[in-house]
Structure formats: structure tokens, C-alpha cells
């Protein structure tokens, strides 16, 4: 990869960007080096995370949001994450099915990515892809997570604004009380609001948030709005888009954007560090010892903690 590649990507070239994303997924040294250089050209895109249970309409909502942002003449990037099969390593990436009406719009770039075993609803490559779209000059990057439900806090910390999508009948207030969801979302979206019970969910949510009171860390003292949408018909989506931009203004006007950016970057660093350490450990692990420890574990001769200590002890000696 050359400075030519960098220039091409910055001028919005889709082929070069798409190929770089491939390299990021495969962890090729060349691609990672290019990404490193490209990083200096990022930091302008506004990142919106979309999370929530499977089947809640996240992809359809993203599709409608692309339209809403385009009507505001903003350029849009989408990173759509789907799960990798733990058995075969294969994946069916189907989020695009709902977004195909936008795929020939040159101001829109949609990329599907498989989790490849990464937890937290994200794919490790997703962060790099966000950077590439940012460098391409996208004004807003929408990141749609896998939709496992309650363990998707990561994306909310990687986004400037995070949406949590739920549907009428997707669980009672006890679900909402569980840690993570209420504290992390900036905007709640009740999609499929034509179904029975939408207003009840809205009321329950608002009641729960009112009860939460003034948590010192929770949300900079702003109560997240709860919006009703019918994404298939585009209903309520313009309001949602407006609400996202309002949240951006809010972050900017209260000087919170910098704080958020710090948190975001801190998490990116943590993830990069974790990945690098994991790679280091993998490359230095004594595989014979590893396998014999697995046998010991199966035979219950030792526990996992001491097995791990033994491996780490060996590492620090090499």
C-alpha cells in the first residue's frame, strides 16, 4: 500500500477502501500500516451505534436512517455486523437485504462484516472499517451490531450516539432493569410501534429511567428520549434522525464531546492492546504444554486458574 492508496481512499474511492477493509479483517501487516497512516485523516465522522435484540428491525431502521441523512445531504457509511458460525467459521451476512435501495447511491457505502468470534456484538475489524469510512469523508457512520441483546455495551461506547432498538413485547421492566441497557443508550427506539403495547413499553421505560435518579456517571444528567418508529413505512424516522443530531448538538454545547471522544479512544486503545497481547500470547505459547494442561483439566488434576498461571509463567521466562 502506498500514499497513492491513502489519497484514493481520502478522495472516496470505493474499490481501494473496500480492499483495505478486507486487509483489516485479515490483519495483514500492510493493511494495518495503511490504516495507521489513515488514522490521521479521521475524526470528522459522527458515529451512531444501533443495537438491540435480533428481529427488532435494526437493519430496516438503518435503511430508513440512511434515507433521512441523505435528505439532509449528509454522506453515509454503514458497518453492518452479523455473526460468524462458531462451528464452521462461515457466515451469512444478510443485513444488506434491507438496505439495497441505497447501494447505488455513490454517497453511501455499506459494508457487511462477520464477528469472527469477537464478543460484545462487534467485530474487531469494525473499528478499522469505521475509520476507513471516516477518512473517505462520510459525515455519519452507522454501526449496526449483531443483536444478541444484553452484552452489547461495547458499541455504545464506540459511538457518539447510541440507539437501543426494542419492540412492543420484547420483555418487561425487569429486563430493562438489568445492568447495561438503560445506562448506555442515548436514544431508545420502539420500532414496530403499530403493534400492540408500544405505548406501554414507552411508559415503562420512561418510568424506569425516572426511577434511576441521578447516577453520577449516568448520561451526563440527560434523560434519553424514547421514540416510536415504524421503520418499514419510514414513520418516525425523520424525528429519530433529528433526535440524533440534537444529541450531537447537546454533546457539543455542553462540552461533552471531548469527554466522549476520550472515552471512545480509550476503548479503542484497550481493544488494540488486548488484540496485540492475545497475538503475542498465541505466538509464544508452548503448545505442547497447552495440550497437556487441557488433558490435566479434563482429568480434573488441576483447575483452569493454575493452568493459566503455568502458561503465563512459561511466557514470562521466554
Amino acid at each position: 500500500m502506498t500514499t497513492e492508496t491513502i489519497d484514493r481512499i481520502i478522495s472516496g474511492d470505493v474499490r481501494s477502501a473496500a480492499r483495505l477493509m478486507r486487509g483489516i479483517e485479515e490483519d495483514t501487516p500492510d493493511a494495518l500500516k495503511t490504516l495507521e497512516t489513515l488514522y490521521r485523516h479521521t475524526g470528522r465522522a459522527y458515529i451512531v451505534g444501533i443495537t438491540g435484540a435480533p428481529g427488532g428491525g435494526k437493519s430496516t431502521l438503518v435503511d430508513a436512517l440512511i434515507g433521512a441523512f441523505r435528505r439532509r445531504e449528509m454522506k453515509v457509511g454503514v458497518v453492518a455486523i452479523d455473526p460468524t458460525s462458531p462451528l464452521t467459521g462461515g457466515a451469512i451476512l444478510g443485513d444488506r437485504v434491507r438496505m439495497q435501495q441505497h447501494c447505488t447511491d455513490p454517497a453511501v457505502f455499506i459494508r457487511s462484516v462477520a464477528t469472527r468470534g469477537w464478543l460484545g456484538g462487534l467485530a474487531r475489524a469494525a473499528v478499522g472499517m469505521m475509520h476507513v469510512m471516516d477518512a473517505m469523508g462520510k459525515d455519519v457512520v452507522l454501526v449496526e451490531t449483531v443483536g444478541i441483546g444484553q452484552q452489547e455495551v461495547d458499541v455504545t461506547r464506540l459511538a457518539h450516539t447510541s440507539l437501543y432498538v426494542l419492540t412492543p413485547g420484547s420483555g418487561d421492566s425487569i429486563q430493562m432493569m438489568k445492568a447495561g441497557i438503560l445506562e448506555m443508550a442515548d436514544i431508545f427506539v420502539i420500532n414496530k410501534a403499530d403493534q400492540e403495547g408500544a405505548y406501554r413499553v414507552k411508559m415503562e421505560l420512561e418510568a424506569m429511567m425516572a426511577m434511576q435518579g441521578e447516577h453520577p456517571e449516568a448520561h451526563e444528567q440527560r434523560q434519553p428520549p424514547v421514540l416510536l418508529t415504524e421503520a418499514v413505512y419510514g414513520k418516525g424516522v425523520d424525528d429519530l434522525c433529528q433526535e440524533i443530531l440534537k444529541h450531537r448538538d447537546y454533546l457539543l454545547s455542553y462540552g461533552l464531546m471531548q469527554k466522549r471522544e476520550h472515552e471512545r479512544v480509550r476503548l479503542e486503545l484497550a481493544e488494540a492492546l488486548e488484540a496485540a497481547l492475545k497475538a503475542l500470547i498465541d505466538s509464544r505459547t508452548d503448545h505442547e504444554l497447552y495440550e497437556s494442561l487441557v488433558d490435566d483439566l479434563v482429568q480434573r488434576r488441576i483447575g483452569p486458574q493454575s493452568a493459566a498461571s503455568q502458561l503465563i509463567g512459561r511466557l514470562s521466562r521466554t
Partner: peptide, 9 residues
């Protein structure tokens, strides 16, 4: 998918 590829549909 079952062969281990990533399939975009």
C-alpha cells in the same frame, strides 16, 4: 456458509 465462507445475501 457451512463450508466456512462469508456469504453476502
Amino acid at each position: 456458509r457451512d463450508a466456512g465462507h462469508e456469504v453476502i445475501y
